[in-house]
Nucleic acid binder design. Sequence first.
DNA 1: CTATGGCTTCAGTGTCGACCGAAACCAAGG
DNA 2: CCTTGGTTTCGGTCGACACTGAAGCCATAG
Lengths: 154, 154
Amino acid sequence: MSAGRETRLSAWVERVAAHFAEEGIPLIGGRILGYLLVCEPVERTAAELAQELEASSGSISTNLKFLVNAGLVTKRTRRGRQAAEYRVDEKRWADMVQRRLDALVSVRDLTESGMRLLSGDPQRAHRLRTVDQLYTWLADELPPLWERRPAPPR
Amino acid sequence: MSAGRETRLSAWVERVAAHFAEEGIPLIGGRILGYLLVCEPVERTAAELAQELEASSGSISTNLKFLVNAGLVTKRTRRGRQAAEYRVDEKRWADMVQRRLDALVSVRDLTESGMRLLSGDPQRAHRLRTVDQLYTWLADELPPLWERRPAPPR
DNA sequence: CTATGGCTTCAGTGTCGACCGAAACCAAGG
DNA sequence: CCTTGGTTTCGGTCGACACTGAAGCCATAG
């Protein structure tokens, strides 16, 4: 039976949702993301998502808005179709990763301004300096590495 | 007046706390962390932290436990001193950063197992493949880069 | 052993946000 | 214009969690 595959896929979607839930994305948002990555066909209406993921229409709407806003999902309306269709924009996934890396690196702004406040007292600045050096290194290394990332095919 | 510096430092501590609050660390935990990075002397008792940060003894206790558990703060007890003293272990800061990077890279486990589930259907796997390739690249590049990081002095 | 002082535990409070479902809204078709 | 099918908005509920403060606990000092 090939129903087994769909079952395992929905378990996979749940794992995806659980992962992103830990990063602060609402459970239903994560389910939508995971589902849109593997569903067939690639486009779904809000109503279909609500049924498939067993979530309320309101939650679907809120989370779709959030995902569209984040650029990870695109909304398409068509003449003659009253229902909008949603699909993942997998090429925008890198943007999300970049936001995470940027958040990491941005700590350097904090350590830097802290170092400035302690500039008169190297002794006292010792702890902060150690941390600052780590983030300075990150800020030096991560952005260039990121630029070297392979462009998504086509 | 050098009181200005302490004022600005406590504003800085608040900024640190705000940053980590966005990453899910409780506000008071972030305040402790920031404060322990710049306070003089470097060691503080729970009672001192409670007073300095204007937080309840309970919150301080809970959050210190959390930070000690995460390795970012060390607890020291001394003969003849009933109050334990806490200080940041700035060298362990890298561990926290590493955990964040690992969390990023770990998404690859998800995309990989998803790809396996779709192995019979390359057409359908297209969206997921794009994402998988991004994380595969990250998983290939980040760990070696991290290993090359400069060791903390001494 | 008793007293003192600090630390931890715990029950209670308040806040915040995810989620739901009904009602309002909007577009296309009859 | 009214109906139909879909989406968004909104009030309300629920659960999670940060935080508090008091009570209990433990270690040291007398």
